[in-house]
Amino acid sequence: SHEQIYVRKVIDLHDKYMEYVRTCFANSSLFHKSLKEAFESFCNKNVTGSSSAELMANFSDNLLKKGGSEKLSDDEIEQTLDKVVELLAYVSDKDLFGEFYRKKLARRLLFDKSASEDHERSILSKLKEQCGAQFTSKMEGMVKDLRLAREKQQQFDEWKARNTKDSSIELNVTVLTTGFWPTYKAVDLALPEEMVTGVEQFKEFYEATTKHRKLAWIYALGTCHIKGNFKPRSIELVLSTFQAALLLLFNQEESMTYMEVKERLNLPDE
């Protein structure tokens, strides 16, 4: 995209003039100061309606997510991340970058879009060095949450094998710490029976193993794999929790009105 090209061009421009300052001007502090002022001048201007902070966050996201447009080796990704963090030094509103970056990080982590946990940790340590520990504390908490959630899931699977016979659905739960993550709206979705059992089991397990923490379910972030038995063949569908809950209603009903669906699922208007 044009945004990616823009940030890449700014990185190349910075490399070019930094090389001049180092080699032609013997690292003169006067030239370093001039370079800094020049980059501060345009790194704090909006480009095509977006701030540089947002463009840099998007550029980083593209580097770090699976299937990003930049096809680079691990070393090249590391070098590019270094350069993004270098450029960030010129951006006056670093907190704005932090907000955009945190939202993108949340999507990568929650939807399994992150290409490498090592790169995720690496850029956080670079940002921490550049912007301070407070800047990255929530982001580090998010990465840690995901690691702990994997461990918790393993414990849940073991607990389920010992304590229940019902395995009608396979449930994976990611437990997050509210303070670290962007705010997500909780909707009190009336889950289909098939899902209720799994949720109740996890609640029982969680309450037995965790003290002083309360679960709030964010169904909007969930995904479901459902097998649809159609003629002539069955198809596996990957849906959001809301879509799956809606489709499962049609196991009992041939047709339903919008209002009936809304009522059965306890959905708000929007």
Results as ranks from 00 to 15, higher is better:
residue 102 R to F: 04
residue 209 T to K: 00
residue 92 S to H: 15
residue 226 I to W: 09
residue 80 T to S: 12
residue 151 E to M: 12
residue 166 D to W: 01
residue 12 D to L: 03
residue 124 L to E: 09
residue 47 V to C: 01
residue 115 A to W: 03
residue 65 K to S: 10
residue 253 E to Y: 14
residue 177 T to L: 05
residue 163 N to W: 04
residue 180 F to Y: 14
residue 14 H to V: 02
residue 117 E to S: 13
residue 212 H to Q: 05
residue 131 C to G: 11
residue 241 T to H: 05
residue 199 V to I: 15
residue 243 Q to V: 03
residue 4 Q to E: 05
residue 129 E to T: 11
residue 239 L to F: 06
residue 165 K to Q: 11
residue 219 Y to L: 07
residue 225 H to C: 04
residue 113 K to A: 08
residue 207 E to V: 08
residue 25 F to V: 00
residue 195 M to A: 06
residue 127 L to V: 05
residue 36 K to Q: 06
residue 156 F to Q: 02
residue 207 E to Y: 07
residue 221 L to K: 15
residue 177 T to C: 02
residue 185 K to T: 13
residue 10 V to Q: 01
residue 258 Y to M: 04
residue 216 A to C: 13
residue 86 E to W: 09
residue 189 L to M: 05
residue 215 L to M: 10
residue 125 S to C: 06
residue 222 G to W: 13
residue 183 T to P: 08
residue 95 D to M: 12
residue 235 I to H: 14
residue 199 V to S: 03
residue 5 I to P: 01
residue 132 G to Q: 05
residue 191 L to C: 05
residue 174 T to Q: 14
residue 151 E to W: 13
residue 56 M to Y: 05
residue 19 E to T: 10
residue 24 C to D: 07
residue 131 C to N: 13
residue 216 A to Q: 14
residue 97 F to K: 12
residue 37 E to K: 15
residue 144 K to P: 02
residue 6 Y to R: 00
residue 20 Y to S: 08
residue 95 D to L: 13
residue 70 E to A: 06
residue 175 V to Q: 10
residue 151 E to N: 10
residue 251 N to E: 09
residue 114 S to H: 11
residue 120 E to G: 05
residue 187 V to H: 14
residue 111 F to K: 12
residue 55 L to Y: 00
residue 220 A to M: 10
residue 206 Y to E: 01
residue 70 E to G: 01
residue 241 T to K: 04
residue 112 D to P: 08
residue 68 G to P: 12
residue 30 L to D: 04
residue 244 A to W: 04
residue 100 F to E: 09
residue 136 T to E: 08
residue 165 K to V: 07
residue 141 G to L: 04
residue 259 M to A: 01
residue 21 V to K: 05
residue 99 E to K: 15
residue 115 A to D: 10
residue 219 Y to R: 07
residue 75 D to E: 06
residue 94 K to Y: 05
residue 150 R to N: 09
residue 139 M to L: 10
residue 235 I to T: 15
residue 233 R to H: 07
residue 168 S to K: 08
residue 213 R to D: 01
residue 169 I to V: 15
residue 45 K to H: 06
residue 29 S to W: 09
residue 69 S to F: 06
residue 21 V to G: 00
residue 121 R to I: 04
residue 208 A to Q: 04
residue 173 V to M: 15
residue 35 L to A: 06
residue 41 S to L: 15
residue 138 K to W: 10
residue 125 S to P: 03
residue 54 E to Q: 09
residue 16 K to Q: 03
residue 114 S to E: 14
residue 50 S to R: 01
residue 205 F to T: 00
residue 63 L to H: 08
residue 190 A to S: 14
residue 252 Q to W: 08
residue 135 F to V: 07
residue 79 Q to C: 07
residue 229 N to D: 11
residue 202 F to N: 05
residue 250 F to K: 00
residue 78 E to V: 11
residue 29 S to T: 14
residue 111 F to E: 11
residue 37 E to M: 13
residue 26 A to Q: 10
residue 191 L to M: 12
residue 51 S to K: 12
residue 267 L to D: 10
residue 123 I to P: 04
